[in-house]
Amino acid sequence: MSFLSRWKTALKTAEGKFFVFLISGFLVFSLFVLAGAFLIDPHEDFGTGLVEPLVLTNRSEKLEMITSLDEKPEILIFGSSRTFTMDPAQIFELTGKRAFNASVSYGRSEDHDAIIHYLAEQQIAHPETLIIGFSAGAFNNDPIETQLLNNKYLKQYLAEPPTPLRKRAPRTLKDKLNAQYIADMFRAVFFHASGFPTDRVSFLPNGMQDTQDSPYDEAKIDDNYYRALALFENVSEPQWERLEAFRSLARYSIDNNFQVKVVLLPMPSITRARLIEDTDLIAIEERLITFFTDEMPDNISFYNFSEVQSFGGSEEGFNDPTHPNIANTRLITEAIFY
């Protein structure tokens, strides 16, 4: 009897039928999970989500907010979540000029370059001044944020066209699909039906995060040190592509006649000391300082506030190892304009 004949005979037994049922169930479940991951898209990896993702989607949100403003801002704030609490109202008090906080989660040079190109070319905003806050970790080797790759307005301004979704999606699913991802799919559906937690990040009409300072907690800073450390994993110098993205922004600032104030943001001294010991932080910062002070045009000003005392800040003015709180951010803002 041939192998094929024996196989057909085996499948007719009770054990064989159970095996077929088991394999069929596994295949159906796998297809369900793959389709759900792509359509629910809990981490905004594909831009296909049928429900609101668990992650912040503030690139799209901030573009919608600034487009709806009655008066165009004269000053724009760019950066990551570290500048979410920079207050346009304070800037108006200091300068008499309207401002908008256009910072986005994990904002990096390619985000800033794409956003200013889009806003200016679409005549949504043509600011006199950009304020760009960053940490040395913003020039690391992390891939471009998928929310930028998926944004139909911004992705056209990237130096290299993003890989088509049909090619990117299988690799993303291969890298990210695990038990936690599947759990996040169900969480996204649950929150869509029942509402998101009230502590979800939200923004005021001027783009500033709607939040209040929490009490200083040194244990929280110590416990979350790994988040700061991750920004410098396998990094010995600023990524060349991100420096090039900033050069593109610098050229655009000259062509469109606006000023740029670049701010190297602080972190708690205890975090900074550990990073100096564990990473190449000093070498990375020195390269960035040279880049911004020696290689940029005259319309770009650089403020090195990497250490708390450089702007008269407080060691207790941090929410975690990487985020200055509102009080320290207000001092940084004052130092920029005075």
Rank of each mutant, 00 (worst) to 15 (best):
P238K: 10
K174V: 14
S103M: 07
Y106R: 07
G16M: 01
D222H: 04
N224R: 04
D222M: 02
L50E: 02
E128V: 04
A89E: 14
K72E: 14
E145L: 10
I332K: 02
T83P: 00
L243M: 12
E160I: 03
A37Q: 06
E334K: 10
L149E: 10
I289D: 13
G137Q: 00
E244W: 03
Q147F: 01
L177V: 15
L204P: 08
T57W: 06
L63E: 05
L130H: 12
R187I: 12
N58T: 03
S60F: 00
L249S: 09
P88S: 11
A37T: 06
T129C: 14
Y153P: 00
D199V: 09
L34A: 13
F318C: 07
E128Y: 03
D87T: 08
G25Y: 01
R287A: 15
L69Q: 11
I91D: 02
D175F: 07
K12S: 08
I326Q: 13
Q122E: 15
F26C: 13
R274Q: 14
N101P: 03
E295T: 13
L165D: 03
L39S: 13
F291E: 15
L281Q: 00
G107Y: 02
H112F: 14
R187D: 13
L50I: 14
E237Y: 12
N206T: 15
R171A: 15
Q156T: 10
G107T: 05
K8V: 05
S194L: 15
F32I: 13
V262M: 08
E285G: 09
Q156D: 14
D222E: 11
A102D: 03
F21Q: 05
A138F: 07
L69P: 08
Q147V: 01
N304Y: 05
I66L: 06
A327F: 12
I131T: 07
R330Q: 11
A37P: 08
Y226A: 14
S214R: 14
R247C: 10
A114M: 05
H117M: 05
L119T: 10
L27V: 15
K72G: 07
A335R: 11
F311D: 09
E315D: 10
L119G: 08
E71H: 12
H192D: 13
E93Y: 03
S68R: 08
G207E: 08
N325L: 04
N150A: 12
N178L: 05
W7G: 00
L288E: 01
N234R: 14
A138W: 09
L265W: 01
S81E: 03
I270P: 02
G317F: 13
K261L: 15
I144G: 00
N206P: 07
R59H: 12
M86T: 05
Y106M: 07
A169N: 11
E334F: 00
D175R: 15
S2P: 08
F246H: 11
L288T: 01
D113T: 06
P324K: 02
T67M: 11
F18H: 04
D184T: 11
R98Q: 10
V104P: 10
F191R: 14
L154I: 08
S202Y: 03
N325F: 03
P170W: 02
I332L: 09
T279Q: 09
E233C: 04
E285V: 11
L249T: 10
E244N: 09
M1I: 07
H126K: 14
V235R: 04
V260S: 02
A273S: 11
